[in-house]
Amino acid sequence: MSQDQFSKSEPLPPNPAAIARLLQRTGRRLPQNAAEPALAIFGQFLGNDAAPARPVFPKFNRKETRHKITAILLQLCLEHPEWSCNRLTQELRDRNVIISANSVYAILVEHQLSTKRERLAKLQEKLAEDSPDLTPLQIALLEKMNIWFKERNFRGVRPGEVLAQDTAYVGNFKNLGEIHLQAVIDTYSSYAFGLLNPDNRAEHSVAILHNQVLPFFRRLHLPVALIDTDKGREYSGKEDHLYGMYLKLCAIEQRRTGSKQFPPHSFIRRFQTIAISEFFEKIDRAGFVSVAQLQSEFNDWLYRYNHIYPFQGYPNMGRSPVALIQKHLEGRAAHAAAPDRP
């Protein structure tokens, strides 16, 4: 084609397919009475006065939509704590919620729910608030993560109602020989009592109850109802066994653990593990000349354990044992001071 022919050529007719694609891409509509479709469309871009006005679309409230998506996402990640961000994204798409995996992760990080451990910790907070809406899957995951939650049915509903008692060997000291720890734990608050002895006779298991445990709860007007023990010789025997007779005298029920129906209490096991790792393995075992001196040092550590030590997760939820007991006492006092409702 020559240059003259090119300059004299007629303009190409408008392509209907190209116009349709342009309309779909830009979101514009073709006027019904448009004589020249191509000019009408391109006039919208070139500012032609003859072109129709652009239609007004309602504003998209992104903040409100993000709030709704976040609520759905948080509920979904707590219902299935083991799901990854990709799995959550796919599940949201099945519910007609389009969001990327990176956005899902950013939202979970913002609400501190990006990991499985953080989600299970949130479920434990719901449990502490007496929220009964836990699914069997959530309960199974919590029991696997926290053995204390697994034995929640053995926990008392108030301080002093259910105690756990056990004896543990803590080591051989140079000037003292073998030392055993007689420990009692309040299953409601994790408050601990400890008595160090050279052996594990029944006299020591009664002494810690008579001198430490019962006077403590008596001052708080909290009666002891039940004590969980194992089947050791310091806790069980014939009818005239010292420990059993003392509990009968104090009207306290004894429940022997170690069977399928009553497994060993993890409350007492955890305290023994903490005491051995954080106290007995860090002290100079050759620097004590008497059990009374060692007991005095252990009492100082036990005070910090009961008043400062924060227990993460169920049942203390970051509070110390004393703080949990104090909260119960304040609730009881407030309930007693409230006027009777008709």
Rank of each mutant, 00 (worst) to 15 (best):
T26C: 10
E297H: 05
E118L: 14
K126T: 08
E178I: 06
P198R: 11
E239S: 13
G287T: 00
F271W: 06
A18M: 12
F154N: 12
H111R: 03
L302Q: 10
F42K: 07
A275R: 04
R117E: 13
A286D: 03
W301H: 07
A35P: 12
V289H: 15
L181F: 06
D4I: 13
L247S: 03
H221I: 10
P321D: 02
A164N: 04
Q138F: 10
Q254V: 00
A336E: 10
F60H: 14
I274G: 11
L220T: 04
P58L: 05
P263K: 08
F45C: 01
A192T: 06
P13A: 08
L214A: 03
G244R: 12
L214H: 10
L127G: 06
A192N: 04
R270S: 09
S189V: 01
A275G: 02
N153D: 14
Q138P: 01
M1V: 12
N175A: 11
F173E: 02
E151P: 01
T273M: 09
A334W: 10
D230E: 01
R158K: 11
E281A: 13
Q44P: 06
F267N: 15
V162D: 13
P136L: 05
L163D: 09
K248A: 12
W148L: 09
A140R: 13
P315W: 00
E36Q: 08
R95T: 00
H80S: 14
S205K: 05
S190R: 14
G331R: 11
Y303M: 05
A333L: 15
H265E: 15
N102A: 12
L196C: 04
K231A: 15
D199C: 06
Q295W: 00
A140W: 10
Q312E: 11
K231Y: 10
C77P: 01
I69Q: 13
A164Y: 00
L73D: 02
A121Q: 07
T135I: 13
G232T: 02
A140N: 06
E10Q: 12
P159G: 05
L181K: 05
E36L: 09
N33G: 05
I185D: 08
P14L: 12
E82A: 13
P159F: 04
N197K: 06
N33V: 04
S320K: 02
L196P: 00
N172T: 13
N175C: 03
H80E: 07
I179M: 01
N96V: 01
E297K: 00
P321C: 11
R62G: 02
A51R: 10
A336F: 14
A323N: 13
G194N: 00
T229A: 09
G258F: 05
A35L: 11
L73F: 02
V289T: 15
P16Y: 05
S114R: 10
Q5I: 14
T26I: 04
E129T: 09
K63C: 07
A140F: 11
E281P: 00
R95Q: 07
F311V: 06
M145A: 15
D186T: 00
R218M: 08
V162A: 11
A202M: 07
K8N: 09
E64W: 09
F298N: 00
R54W: 10
A292L: 07
R117V: 11
L78K: 01
